[in-house]
Design a protein around this nucleic acid. Structure first.
Lengths: 142, 142
DNA sequence: AAGGAAAATTATAATGATTATAAAATAACA
DNA sequence: TGTTATTTTATAATCATTATAATTTTCCTT
């Protein structure tokens, strides 16, 4: 964790460590505000700007991914490996899906264009919500 | 064009026709403001809200695609067929690429999740900018 | 062709995520 | 321990987008 910051030439601060700790292994795809709200009780002096700044440098350094699957807000993923993100239209949660199209290994060349990065966003209904809906139907006999 | 509006149960207005006309066959991926600026001289009374409203209903009806490849602004594509979008980091233009991953035919099922929609955003350097860079290097002997 | 209800347009204000600013605090080096 | 560059903080600014409410227009009906 400390190494990630040092590797990027950043100073070690309690705020940055706390943000990295929240992100570490986190698959909930928090927004900047989610992180801010989670840390505020332990860090009463924490500023939202610090969270934004830290996420920006981490994303710039390739340590976290910006997930722009929703139109209104950015979310963050500490897993920098390419994988797709899936937004359930029912529960509004973002999930990782570790499939990746075989014909999209980066970097690659498509019709003369150099492709360096890629975001794959999927939309639909997650298996949890499908199950709920199915059960609801059966129980209510609709 | 008129049919598109009628099909969606919308009234035919000069503003909507003008917006549809700009979009028809357009591959430049304009933003709402781009469209507004282009139409304002011919439609001095046009309001930006009208452009946003029209694009929203067209997108809702599946007649145009929202392209969220840039983090700050939405762009629009009159081609509703799934295809990927490519942002050149040098010239900042958005291009269509008509490739599509073979293993992503919609709708489909991935690990129990129902996938209904998909956005594929690519980032890199377009062939035009690659050529310019290459030539620049040769000419300057760097 | 005129009337009228429902929908659309308009000008404007509000929203809300993100970014910029500048002063105060802190980390890390000598 | 002192110093300097960096970071944090509080706050304001930005800017795309959405909401509001009054006016205008479409289009169905007569």
């Amino acid at each position: 964790m400390i190494n990630k910051l040092k590797k990027m030439g950043l100073k070690i601060t309690p705020q940055r460590l706390a943000i990295l700790k929240i992100l570490d292994g986190n698959t909930s795809h928090p927004s900047a505000e989610d992180i801010y709200k989670e840390l505020k009780p332990q860090f009463p002096s924490l500023s939202l700007a610090t969270v934004y700044n830290t996420l920006e440098v981490l994303a710039g350094g390739g340590e976290v991914q910006e997930v722009r699957i929703k139109s209104d807000k950015k979310h963050f993923d500490p897993n920098p490996a390419p994988h797709c993100h899936f937004l359930c239209r029912v529960c509004d949660n973002i999930y990782d899906l570790d499939m990746w199209p075989e014909d999209l290994q980066l970097p690659c060349d498509i019709k003369g264009n150099l492709i360096q990065g890629c975001n794959l966003y999927l939309y639909g209904i997650c298996f949890r919500c499908r199950d709920k809906y199915k059960n609801g139907n059966n129980n209510n006999n609709n």
